[in-house]
Amino acid sequence: MNELTEWVLTNVITYGAPVFLAVTFVGSLGIPVPISLLIVAAGAFVQQGVLDWRLALPACLFGAVLADNSEYLLGHVAGKWLGRRFGHRALWKRGLATFKRQGGLAILLTRFWLNPLAPVVNLIAGGGYPYFRFLFYDLTGEALWVVLYGGLGYLFGREWEVIGQLMNDFTGLSFGLLALAVGVYLYLRWRRKEV
């Protein structure tokens, strides 16, 4: 466990929900704070009676959703500029259309599973994905994330450090399998074209 994580944990058990809100906001912006581990820890703190879940749950949800919306807004501003520059290109139009069709799934999955990709997806979504649809998938995904990770911390209590490690490794393994699947898919498609 690094010093930053230790510092955050000390402050969470001392000051409670406000620190938790600030940390989930900062972490959800893509700044490297191990927030998934902290959610697991928060679940354990709730079980120990150190944190009140009625404050911790909304704080965590609000911090994460606020960060996602900030990135969406940034993507919206940048998207206008990019649209003026590349809007006439077929590739740009095709990319936007694809994201409008399938972006919901990407938003949902990057909230509770492939979390490191969430900031990128938020920025892309800001470029043209309808806001209320974004908010719906964002809230659903973040709620799943908090309940799933926090719930595991609550259930396993004193073993929350191992659970946090387990979830981080699971995300890493998912990225590995995803890269492998994309690589094999591209290889097969390429071979088919070659033949």
Partner: peptide, 21 residues
Amino acid sequence: ALVVLLILAGLVLSAFFGYRL
């Protein structure tokens, strides 16, 4: 090169995180 890179990265990441998991 992209295919080889993706497959290699995928194998290394899967093995590393799978072992840790």
